[in-house]
Amino acid sequence: MAAFTRRAFLQWSGLTCLLFTTRRLFALAPLRSRGDVPWKVQQVLKQLFGDRPVQEGHVQLDVPTVAADGRVVPVMVESDLPMTANAYVKAIHVLVDNNPDIHIAEFRLTPEIGQAFLSTRIKMRMTSPVRAIIETSDGAVWGAAADVRVTVNGCG
């Protein structure tokens, strides 16, 4: 066995440090990515859309960044997808990750609604991402998410 030299010590400590920092970086990565969907929400999405992936884009979700009262949180969902007789937005779903009921509302629309737009007010239990998911008549699923900070519990 080689003698315990200064060179060997520095090499090993350098490697170990590198190992720890990379582990830390990997551990932080999922927290930073907004596309990370919690398991309980994935289950709901699977129930709603089966194996169809939720694609990003085409959905504009307008929610406050801070909601003082979780009992009344305004939500606006808008989409640039067409609303014509053969291609239209079939449904708008609103999901709140940390609510007792994750899938809080489903709005089924028809082409007679001239434009894919919807505004309502929801309850939120605590700070959570809000997701708006749009289902089109040809089966495509589009989604958007935004974080809302809640200070007063609105669900009990």
Partner: peptide, 24 residues
């Protein structure tokens, strides 16, 4: 005589539920 929209809600909608949407 036509249904143009149909909503399925839970108690996650605020008290005195309000909704706004366009209509042709």
């Amino acid at each position: 005589d036509r249904e143009v929209a149909h909503f399925a809600w839970t108690s996650g909608i605020s008290r005195d539920p309000f909704v706004e949407f366009p209509l042709r």
